[in-house]
Simulated assay, not measured.
Amino acid sequence: MYFLYTIIASLAVFFILKWLKKRRYCTDLRRLDGKTIIITGGNSGIGKETAIALAMRGARVIIACRDPDKAEKAVREIKLKSHSLNVLHMELDLANLSSVREFCKSFLQREKKLDILVNNAGMPGVLEWTDNNFSMCFGVNHLGHFLLTNLLLPRLKECAPSRVITLTCSSYKYQKLDFQDLNYNQLPFFTYCRSKLANIYFSQEVARITEGKGVTSYAVHPGFVQSGWTCHYSILFRMLVQVIMWMFFVPCEIGAQTVIYCAVSDEAAKHSGGYFIDCRPATLRPFARDAAVAKKLWEASERLVNLA
């Protein structure tokens, strides 16, 4: 009898875990021939799976990341899996604003088109600092992408209709921004939450300032994904989290589906400035829809990156 109960309990756990990990797939088969796409952090995780999927649809895909060796390896894998040779790498370190400016200068000289910008790269909650003395989370997740998008925005407008997709996380709901301490870098999880909330405000403000100019903007929560973010922590922590991720998190291929959806879907284009989960629009907490806060963050970010 005990053996039977064990089997029933095991099956119940199996089906619960399977249900928790069930996610929608992007079913839109639109081609992207002739389109040029930048994906930050496209050498691994969700970024690489997004690159494979969009390259398979005929796009010219540029993965932007800081490690040339990892990037070249990723380019070979993406080409092999997508059966496309139109994939390349350009060096970009989002933790260094000079690198962001150099990347944009080089890209604008080399490439005549930019149709989709995927702000995918991100840092987990680590108490480190960027080369410009910003907290690593806020500096990479928000400020690096903020400067990158602004410098590339004229090209996106020239190539309209175009799209900006920024990855965020549902953990935004656990924190609010403190404009007296945007560079907050104390509790790792809260630091991460604030950077993800900044991503949402940023995406909304991109939609506002480009309204009527052919550029649409989307904030995407890809779900909780089995990515490589644990590499920034100790071996013991990695081992523990790997078990949890295996049980409850989804593979990167599934995590990329909502990004792909926002890159190709006509339906998504009707919701510029929206927040997407599981290939459909989702509702944000009221404080995360505050247009005045989004504008204030934009103006503060302009000063921090010396954009004005």
Results as ranks from 00 to 15, higher is better:
residue 40 T to G: 06
residue 43 N to H: 09
residue 48 K to M: 14
residue 46 I to N: 05
residue 30 R to L: 00
residue 36 T to E: 02
residue 52 I to Q: 09
residue 52 I to S: 05
residue 43 N to D: 04
residue 46 I to Q: 03
residue 27 T to S: 14
residue 32 L to G: 01
residue 25 Y to T: 07
residue 41 G to P: 08
residue 30 R to F: 02
residue 32 L to Y: 01
residue 23 R to N: 06
residue 41 G to L: 08
residue 28 D to W: 00
residue 38 I to W: 08
residue 38 I to M: 02
residue 33 D to G: 12
residue 23 R to I: 05
residue 53 A to F: 11
residue 28 D to P: 05
residue 37 I to R: 12
residue 32 L to F: 03
residue 47 G to E: 03
residue 48 K to V: 04
residue 29 L to W: 04
residue 36 T to H: 05
residue 46 I to D: 00
residue 48 K to Q: 14
residue 44 S to I: 12
residue 29 L to S: 13
residue 53 A to V: 10
residue 33 D to S: 13
residue 44 S to V: 13
residue 43 N to W: 05
residue 49 E to F: 09
residue 26 C to N: 13
residue 26 C to D: 09
residue 53 A to R: 15
residue 50 T to L: 09
residue 28 D to Y: 10
residue 23 R to E: 06
residue 45 G to S: 06
residue 30 R to N: 04
residue 29 L to M: 13
residue 53 A to E: 15
residue 29 L to N: 11
residue 43 N to I: 02
residue 31 R to L: 13
residue 24 R to D: 06
residue 34 G to R: 09
residue 48 K to P: 00
residue 48 K to D: 01
residue 27 T to I: 10
residue 49 E to P: 01
residue 40 T to Y: 02
residue 40 T to M: 11
residue 35 K to R: 11
residue 42 G to D: 02
residue 43 N to Y: 05
residue 39 I to L: 01
residue 49 E to A: 14
residue 27 T to G: 00
residue 46 I to W: 07
residue 43 N to C: 10
residue 53 A to I: 11
residue 29 L to R: 12
residue 42 G to F: 02
residue 47 G to A: 12
residue 28 D to I: 15
residue 53 A to W: 10
residue 51 A to K: 11
residue 48 K to A: 08
residue 35 K to Q: 10
residue 37 I to C: 07
residue 30 R to I: 04
residue 38 I to G: 07
residue 24 R to L: 08
residue 42 G to T: 07
residue 26 C to A: 09
residue 46 I to F: 07
residue 42 G to V: 07
residue 38 I to A: 03
residue 29 L to C: 10
residue 32 L to H: 02
